[in-house]
Simulated assay, not measured.
Amino acid sequence: MEKIAASVFQFDVIRGGVAENRALVMEALEHCPSGLVVLPEMWSCGFDYKHLDTHALGTEEILKDLSDMARRRSLVIVGSLPVSEGGSIYNVAHVMDADGRLAGSYSKTHLFTAGGEGRGFAAGSSAGVFETMAGPVGVMICYDLRFPELSRTLMDKGARILAVPAQWPAVRRTHWQTLARARAIENQLFVVAANRCGEDGELRYPGSSLIVSPTDQVLVDMGEGPGLATAELDFSLMDDYRKAIPCLRERRPEVYAL
């Protein structure tokens, strides 16, 4: 597949407001064109640390709804939800393929300890690239974006798209924009990054969900308001650019080793 539609949906995630958040997301998915859509991080409940156990119990039901929606609308859906496993809670991005199959899941590897994430979540320990109707999709979650080693690993595993669900605050908006663009440029792939907007307590979120091409063309920058935006990803342009600027095959790992 040479071209696909990719969408990002950003909204004001209500902490603990599962019913409201769920209704907003399902309505948005009804209006997405067939292709890939990325949702914000922890979109069902936000960082409702006091009730994560309860919210995690509802994740399976939400995944059934996403499976039905993916199959009916021919969507590849990526967004993170709380999952309980082995007595711990993980921040997990599920990749639902367009046939309703769960293509895979990725547990957030890098917890934002400065924001207290370690008090509610356990860290994942593996990188994931998942085969989907949209092609091979690698997943990073929010703070993961600061770690180029992870994005490079995903590219090496065959990712042609990096999907990034996030709740990145407005105070570091320029970091969000710069890092998303850097991950696209250095790995010569598409970055589809969905960030929340609105406010949660003292934190303000800028939205600014992004779709960035391998050539650093910002195909989408949504700004601050809630909504849905879509761009076309042309993989033939990506392949041509990798041939023209062959930095991926001209790496010298033996020099970089510690």
Rank of each mutant, 00 (worst) to 15 (best):
F47Q: 15
E149G: 08
A257P: 07
N91L: 08
H55F: 05
S125E: 14
K157C: 05
G227S: 00
F130V: 08
L111W: 03
S209D: 08
V191N: 05
R204P: 14
G118N: 07
A127Q: 09
H55R: 15
S107I: 02
G207F: 03
D99R: 04
L111D: 13
W168E: 06
K157L: 08
W168I: 03
G207H: 06
G207W: 00
A6N: 01
F190R: 00
Y143L: 15
D48I: 04
L102T: 15
E254I: 14
L81K: 11
V18Q: 08
M1V: 13
E202D: 09
D234Q: 04
C45D: 05
F235K: 01
V8Y: 00
G201I: 11
M26L: 15
Y106D: 07
D221L: 07
E41C: 06
A159M: 04
A180N: 06
D53W: 15
H51M: 14
L189T: 00
G158V: 05
S151W: 10
S151I: 02
L145V: 10
S125M: 13
L258K: 09
M96G: 01
L57K: 07
P253K: 04
W176D: 07
A5P: 00
F147Y: 11
L102V: 15
R119C: 09
R183N: 12
R22W: 05
A5V: 05
R15D: 09
A134Q: 03
F147E: 14
P136N: 11
V191L: 09
F130N: 14
L219P: 10
Q167D: 04
S125C: 06
D65F: 08
F47C: 06
V76T: 01
I4M: 09
P214H: 10
A166H: 09
F130S: 11
A70T: 03
V76K: 03
S209K: 04
L233M: 06
V218N: 10
T59S: 06
A166C: 06
G158C: 02
V78N: 00
T132W: 01
L81P: 10
A182R: 06
F47G: 10
A159R: 01
E85D: 10
S88H: 12
L57I: 13
E149C: 12
A163N: 02
L63M: 01
P33Q: 01
L52W: 08
P169S: 15
G100V: 11
G128M: 02
R15S: 13
M222H: 03
D144N: 06
G138Q: 11
V78Y: 02
V95A: 03
D200P: 03
W168G: 06
Q167Y: 12
S88L: 12
G100L: 14
S74M: 01
D200L: 08
R71L: 13
V83L: 11
V25W: 01
R72V: 09
F112L: 12
G16I: 11
V83C: 15
T174C: 15
D216N: 14
R22S: 10
Y205D: 11
G135H: 02
T153H: 05
A134E: 04
E117I: 03
V218E: 13
L111A: 04
S236F: 11
M140W: 07
S80M: 04
A98Y: 07
V37H: 00
V212Y: 05
P33M: 02
E232D: 08
